[in-house]
């Protein structure tokens, strides 16, 4: 396996498997963190002061520490402190631990964006809904939600593109995502050793995927331009 032509399919196959893991982590994080972020943003606005303080404290801790440390803590803490490795050793266990760390981390970031988005909607929208006899739930879902989405879409898009790249942090607890897969060929894997190019080639994966996301998010923003 000396020539590039021989190596290419083997490397691409390995990178595809790694990138599948990257994608899985990306989507699971989004699906978990968007709704959880909304719930947390309500918590951080709660009129019940102890809840509000607790939620704000958690947000402060999560946003104030590196995601990498959070990954290490979530995966290793149960084993180190309670002598009970709840996650298991294999890839599935590592993935679940990673996904939980990512969902917690990103939902805190999202919650702050949501909070800003909700606070930015004029109070007159609430009042107009109230005097028209709408319930609070109806006012949120039928009146404010879409206005909020329009406001938060640009900062959320930023976070989403960052998330794609942040998935590479998962390798700290040996989740075998695409960069891990690329790096394996530097040390030696599947008969290919000392190859540098697969590592750099992973950048293409990120670039293409982020390109697709940029187009989709841009389309979405455009779609919401029909009102001001």
């Amino acid at each position: 396996m000396d020539t590039f032509v021989e190596q290419f399919p083997v490397v691409i196959n390995a990178l595809n498997i790694g990138f599948l893991q990257t994608l899985k982590l990306f989507f699971v994080t989004l699906i978990g963190a968007l709704p959880l972020g909304l719930i947390i943003s309500f918590g951080s606005k709660s009129k019940f002061v102890p809840l509000k303080l607790l939620v704000r404290f958690i947000i402060w801790v999560v946003r104030g520490t590196p995601l990498m440390i959070q990954l290490l803590i979530i995966y290793y803490f149960p084993g180190l402190v309670f002598h009970n490795n709840v996650w298991g050793s294999n890839e599935t266990g590592r993935f679940i631990a990673t996904a939980i760390a990512f969902i917690i981390n990103y939902s805190c970031y999202f919650s702050e964006i949501f909070r800003g988005g909700i606070n930015g909607i004029p109070v007159g929208q609430d009042e107009a809904g109230l005097v028209l006899g709408m319930t609070k739930k109806e006012i949120f879902f039928k009146v404010k939600l879409l206005q909020m989405i329009k406001r938060i879409l640009p900062p959320i898009s930023n976070e989403i593109l960052t998330l794609v790249k942040d998935t590479s942090l998962a390798r700290i607890i040996a989740l075998q995502e695409v960069i891990w897969a690329g790096q394996a060929f530097m040390k030696g894997s599947q008969g290919i050793s000392g190859e540098i190019w697969p590592l750099f080639f992973t950048a293409i994966y990120y670039l293409i995927f982020n390109g697709i996301l940029t187009v989709i998010l841009g389309k979405l923003e455009q779609k919401l331009e029909y009102f001001k």
Partner: peptide, 18 residues
């Protein structure tokens, strides 16, 4: 239920933009 006895027109309209 009871506020529906009244309608209110605001100074700044407060229409729903979407």
């Amino acid at each position: 239920k009871n506020r529906l006895h009244f309608g209110l027109v605001f100074q700044s309209f407060n229409l729903f933009p979407q």
